[in-house]
Amino acid sequence: MSNDRAAVFSAGSWGTAVAKIMADAGTDVMVHARRSEIADAINTSRRNPAYFPDVDLPASLTATTDPVAALDGADYLVLSIPAQTLRSNLASWATHIGPDTLIVSLMKGIEQDSGLRASQVIAEVTGVSADRVAVLSGPNLAREIMDGRPAAATVACADEVAARRFQTACHTRYFRPYTSTDVIGCELGGAVKNVVAVAAGVASGMGLGDNATAVLVTRGLAETTRLAMAMGAHPATLAGMSGLGDLVATCTSPLSRNRTFGAYLGRGLTLDEAAAATRQTTEGVKSAEAILALSRAHDVEMPITEVISAFLHGKVTLDEAAAALMQRPPKSER
């Protein structure tokens, strides 16, 4: 059992799931919730009524709306907020982060204006070294984890000792974390798979079948790997939990918010209607243009990302998007 303490920002579905994992692993966890009614419910009824009203939370998991109280004495700061609001939120918290706190990113998106990965934004805003920023990424559907179903993930950090430390802090009977020093590969695997999942959802919503989904997963992995390698990642990372594992789960499960969003689009809903129906942040939509910009900067071909970005920005219709992916010139597979 650990005597460590973690601050988890925020009380959304994935933040709550990781908070539960860490509490089950023996870490004292304080969740920072934006809404007082959520914090009060966690503290009094041991449940998060907004996301998991049917799941009891461990007694060592508490909540607050005060970010300073949450960060006080925290060994880990676990960030689970939308990638596009990370910079502004973190700027207001940065002065309260302890000098030895390990900052862990759960975010799977690319900042739109800068093209930076979450770990880069964290380092830039807080001024901490890369050794103090870790990433947790993998095939982790929050609902299944809250139900105690088996899952695994990758903890990536430039400092291998720090990665192993956080690995211990979130290792339970149902959650198995592996370690890596390839932060770039882990983050890009998590970010690009959301765009591919939107494409898989669109295909599902259009009734294109399981073969089409398999094609998107396979070719999606290929373009993700190309970009990651061009940016300095190791190809083996993309064959692991934060690459192929996350891609398969996100592209095939009805629990996936990005796939669900895409499925609504494939059935003919508008972007606003699909967003309202999904009711959660879909990082694939927010990050598609930034990922496409990275691909162009590194001269990497990413046809799925390109078509989905064009579709999301109204440059092509649904039928044109589907046709564009299938009517590309035949080539060797590599």
Rank of each mutant, 00 (worst) to 15 (best):
D4I: 08
A6H: 08
A7S: 13
S10R: 10
G12R: 09
S13E: 10
G15R: 09
A17S: 05
V18K: 03
K20C: 02
M22S: 11
D24M: 01
G26L: 12
D28W: 00
A33S: 14
R34I: 14
R35S: 09
I42N: 06
N43I: 01
P58A: 05
A59Y: 09
T62S: 10
A63N: 08
A63Y: 10
T64L: 07
T64N: 04
T65A: 00
T65H: 02
D66V: 05
D66P: 01
A69E: 10
Y76G: 01
I81R: 03
I81G: 02
T85G: 11
R87K: 12
S88Q: 13
L90E: 03
A91T: 15
S92Y: 03
W93P: 01
W93V: 12
D100H: 12
T101F: 09
T101C: 12
S105C: 00
I110S: 13
D113C: 05
S114G: 04
S114A: 03
L116I: 07
A118D: 02
S119Q: 02
I122K: 13
A123D: 09
E124L: 08
T126S: 10
G127N: 09
V128F: 01
S129T: 13
A130M: 13
I145Y: 10
I145N: 07
G148P: 15
C157R: 07
C157S: 04
E160C: 01
Q167D: 13
Q167A: 07
A169D: 13
R173Y: 05
Y174E: 09
T179G: 03
V183L: 10
V183C: 06
C186K: 07
A191K: 15
V192A: 14
V196C: 13
V196T: 14
A197G: 13
V198P: 04
G201Q: 14
G205W: 00
G209R: 06
T213R: 14
L221A: 11
T224V: 13
R226L: 15
M229H: 00
A230W: 06
A230D: 08
M231T: 04
A233F: 11
L238I: 12
D246N: 10
A249L: 02
S253Y: 08
L255Y: 13
T260A: 05
F261T: 06
G262M: 01
A263N: 12
A263I: 03
G266H: 03
L269K: 11
T270S: 15
T270D: 03
L271I: 12
A276N: 03
T278E: 11
T278N: 05
K286H: 12
A288P: 00
R296N: 10
A297I: 10
H298C: 09
M302L: 12
P303S: 10
I304G: 02
L312D: 04
L325D: 03
L325P: 07
E333I: 05
